[in-house]
Nucleic acid binder design. Sequence first.
DNA 1: CCAAAAGTGTTGTAAATACACCCATGC
DNA 2: GCATGGGTGTATTTACAACACTTTTGG
Lengths: 245, 245
Amino acid sequence: MFDTTNYLSGISIDSVLMSFQNNRLEVLLLKWKGANIWTLPGGFIKRDESINSAAKRILKERTSLDYIFLEQFYTFGDPDRRNKVQLDSLLRMIDADENIACWLRQPFITIGYLSLVRQTEIEALPDQFSENCTWFSIDNLPELIFDHEQIIGKALAQIKLKINYLPLGLTLLPQNFTMKSLQQLYETVLGKQFDRANFQKKMLKLNVLQRTGTQQSGMSHKSPFLYKFNKKKYSRLVKEGIGYI
Amino acid sequence: MFDTTNYLSGISIDSVLMSFQNNRLEVLLLKWKGANIWTLPGGFIKRDESINSAAKRILKERTSLDYIFLEQFYTFGDPDRRNKVQLDSLLRMIDADENIACWLRQPFITIGYLSLVRQTEIEALPDQFSENCTWFSIDNLPELIFDHEQIIGKALAQIKLKINYLPLGLTLLPQNFTMKSLQQLYETVLGKQFDRANFQKKMLKLNVLQRTGTQQSGMSHKSPFLYKFNKKKYSRLVKEGIGYI
DNA sequence: CCAAAAGTGTTGTAAATACACCCATGC
DNA sequence: GCATGGGTGTATTTACAACACTTTTGG
């Protein structure tokens, strides 16, 4: 059972797990027990852990992943970010113990974390408050609790802002990928098109990609090369800023 | 007197007030009463206000400034970010009421805010815990409490990261300034030199500067032009990213 | 006249862009 | 053969960096 005294009160963590599937950015959402409303995976901070390790722990509980890209991006602290009527009805749904309910009714600020992941590597599990979890395209989100839609929006803005300092390719694409899919990733994130030939030349010039073979597509055209990242070179590049897109 | 029940517990705000003086970046620090140790201006969040307005209010209490550049940049939540021995000795210095002392001894996370200001427009005031305040060059800081040096470091990193999205010139330089001082600002922040002629050409091409006359320098050389920003054009540019430095 | 620093111009190189061409594949 | 999409080459334009030249000012 959840013992509130082990945790910092008034502070939560919400994580935006972002993936790239079917040429779309998708986020993982949990369906609240008994209600047709969704939430970001989140949790609370133990008294003796840092917020960063709390975020890591929470994510591991949901995804079993140990080493993933995870980064704090913003703290949300509007006093009415959690609609009281909605909160009450949600607490009723889960039949919350009065002690816990009272604890949850305090004002809460939440620290937003961004995680970049591959769906294929994750078997996501619901938590104590939710009954299942699914990936949603970010431009087709269901009804979300509280300010969680705003949190996703801010996460997306952060990705665009830090795009030259994020290992998008390494975290979001499969190990082996085509140049086209890399291009589509950047086109989707930035919402603009690139010239195919020039994109390829830029990427190869960065000197972080290596060919691993060709994709047997069965399509009526030349089969494209597959690439993978040279991880060392790529992380060094990302640290200094790709500065190329 | 400070009534702890009005405030969220376990959460504070610390602001890095950054200015540009004598070709150096300087931050405002407050000297703790009776101790030779300094802190960032900070405060706590009232139960009914957002963290952003709390940051604004706290800054106004210190500087009397109403409209200034203020932006959240990171939340610090290491459980041992506040050294207990140091905290106790600091509480003794200010003769803290036992109620307040107890409240302050809880684990605290702090939300870091960055503010870009002109020293000339500010008459900074110490708060209830401090006896005076001064500007310090960021590469010559005094002893700081807790993790405040780390907070300043992160603020600086944030400035470098977002440099194309921050109105550095408008917030840090006097209304009328020379091209040289604008260049020195960017050189100081980024820690690298630019070619004088090329810098001037780039800046003028951005189409956000207008000449307002010349500086009567009394120096034995040509007197430089003075410039000011076209604020509308400049804010539009900053929003999209200057992308030019 | 000279030194110092500001303003402007020139030139060579590098990068970004647009687009053309060829290649492999399945029908 | 042809449509489709992948890979590569080229020409043009644009940007960048280095540096030279000119101007103003005080001594």
